[in-house]
């Protein structure tokens, strides 16, 4: 189950939920990888934002 924990840690890091940087991300090129990840997210957001619906809990 170790790989599951590692995957969880990675996802939480990529999602901005944890400050703990995964070891393989902590190298000298980490900040470039981060920019690539941001670009991937920005690209997805731009392409998918059209269908934007209300957040469900806004109406509560």
């Amino acid at each position: 189950m170790n790989w599951l924990l590692r995957l969880k840690h990675w996802l939480e890091f990529l999602g901005g939920a944890t400050d703990a940087v995964p070891r393989s991300f902590n190298g000298p090129g980490g900040w470039v990888l981060l920019a690539v990840w941001w670009m991937a997210l920005v690209g997805l957001i731009t392409l998918f934002c059209r269908q934007a619906s209300k957040f469900i809990y806004i109406d509560f």
Binding site: V21, G30, W31, V32, L34, A35, V36, W38, M39, V42, G43
Partner: peptide
């Protein structure tokens, strides 16, 4: 650890990638 320099570096790379994407 994210330093101000690294953060700004990431922003610059992001700007370059965004330009390419456009």
């Amino acid at each position: 650890m994210m330093t101000a320099r690294r953060f700004l570096g990431s922003l610059v790379v992001l700007a370059g990638l965004f330009l390419l994407f456009n």
